[in-house]
């Protein structure tokens, strides 16, 4: 399956995006999304960036600080390869 990482927000609000093919099982994906779900009570960071993960047609906000160690490399690569959406 393809996962797409999208970044929004910031000092000037721009959208950046990167996608990658992964071999997650459905169960693994559900578990990962559950773990990296952002805290809904978190304060809005002034000029902060926000990330969302798109899989197929579904989209979910994620907190990259919560990414488990075994997925660090994958998400680092995704983040580093993000391009501005024109």
């Amino acid at each position: 399956m393809k996962i797409k990482l999208i970044r929004t927000g910031g000092f000037i609000p721009i959208t950046k995006m990167a996608e990658v093919e992964v071999n997650f099982t459905d169960k693994e994906l559900v578990r990962l999304i559950e773990v990296i779900k952002p805290d809904p009570s978190a304060q809005r960071i002034k000029d902060g960036n926000y990330y969302q993960l798109n899989v197929g047609t579904s989209s979910t906000p994620v907190d990259l600080e919560k990414v488990p160690e075994e997925y660090n490399e994958l998400f680092s690569k995704l983040k580093n390869s993000m391009k501005i959406v024109k």
């Binding site: 000092f11 304060q43 960071i45 002034k46 000029d47 960036n49 580093n80 501005i84």
Partner: peptide, 27 residues
Amino acid sequence: DKGMDNAYWDGRRMVYGDGDGVVFTSF
């Protein structure tokens, strides 16, 4: 972060990225 093109205030502190070096330089 690596090449982060942003700066923000998180309620306690100011945080600055170095920019990607292509579109943005250090914030």
